[in-house]
């Protein structure tokens, strides 16, 4: 075996982490990389409900002597619920929207950079993509949180930067890198004949890209893009570790206000699980439906 081949095989075969491999599309234009959506969409909502009910009984049995019942815990949850949703989960959603917006804009630029004919630019964009795609999200979050100023001064006015804005930028880095891969993969999945035909008709590279290539890959980018949105939304509670007052932080505060009874744990965190599931599950289902539709049409 030639050394080149062996190295290639090692590069491709030595990891089971999908994220370490280059993003791929099938010949039909579908994306291979939708594991998260597939896993989530395969779930039956009833499983989760049953699990919740069973879990609610658990502390009631074990800690029955404490005098605080599961019914009381559910009651507490019911009282806190509007607050948790309107102040907590809403912030998770806002963070997810903004992160996706910034991550997508930056990711598209980085992805286009990866296929630039300017070699140094392409290498740089490739490097940034790989760096942020393969770094732990929490580490990126901490770096951004601690290195960004907590306020900026423009003219005479001092603008404070709230933590959640910094968290948006921290989360946008890995999203940007993954969108960059989606864009690069989609562009490279368009047959070279399309480039050659456009070139032969005297299109410039820019015209070829914007008039011929990108319109063809737009559709195939949507399912993996939505896949990443669902992953991102599920990951937003990470920012509770940095003190951002999203749903998990507020749940913990609420439980403290309710005297930290252990019976509160399962209802409160269980509710967080359910609300994330209820939000992301339809997205995952829809992602797979789009994937199927676009793949058939090609």
């Amino acid at each position: 075996m030639k050394p080149g081949n062996r190295q290639k095989r090692i590069l491709q075969g030595s990891t089971d982490l999908a994220v370490l491999k280059p993003f791929r599309y099938s010949a039909a234009g579908g994306a291979y990389d939708l594991q998260f959506s597939r896993w989530l969409a395969d779930f039956s909502p009833w499983h989760l409900l049953l699990l919740m009910l069973a879990a609610c009984l658990w502390p009631g049995i074990v800690l029955a002597q404490s005098g605080y019942t599961t019914a009381q815990a559910m009651d507490a949850l019911w009282r806190w619920l509007p607050f948790l949703v309107s102040k907590g989960f809403l912030l998770n959603l806002i963070v997810s929207f903004l992160t996706m917006l910034i991550g997508t804009l930056a990711g598209v630029l980085l992805g286009l950079g990866q296929i630039s004919p300017l070699r140094p630019l392409a290498r740089l964009c490739w490097f940034l993509t790989q760096l942020f795609r393969n770094s732990p999200w929490l580490v990126l979050l901490f770096i951004v949180m601690l290195s960004f100023p907590f306020e900026i001064t423009i003219g005479d006015t001092v603008y404070p930067i709230p933590d959640w804005i910094k968290a948006v930028f921290g989360l946008a880095l890995p999203i940007m890198a993954n969108i960059s891969e989606i864009v690069r993969g989609a562009i490279q999945s368009v047959p070279t004949g399309q480039w050659e035909a456009a070139e032969s008709l005297a299109y410039t590279r820019q015209q070829t890209l914007w008039l011929v290539i990108l319109p063809q890959c737009f559709k195939r980018m949507i399912p993996p893009w939505m896949n990443w949105y669902a992953i991102l939304t599920m990951a937003t509670p990470l920012i509770s570790l940095l003190g951002v007052e999203e749903i998990v932080t507020l749940s913990r505060q609420a439980m403290e206000a309710e005297d930290n009874h252990p019976e509160l744990l399962v209802p409160f965190f269980g509710f967080a699980l359910v609300i994330f599931f209820a939000y992301c599950y339809p997205i995952a289902r829809y992602t797979l439906r789009l994937e199927k539709r676009f793949a058939v049409k090609g």
């Binding site: 047959p191 004949g193 399309q194 050659e196 035909a197 456009a198 032969s200 008709l201 005297a202 063809q216």
Partner: peptide, 14 residues
């Protein structure tokens, strides 16, 4: 390429 037209085996229509 404005002076030279080309047609391909695989058509390559957009």
């Amino acid at each position: 390429r404005k002076k030279v037209g080309m047609v391909f085996q695989q058509y390559n229509l957009f």
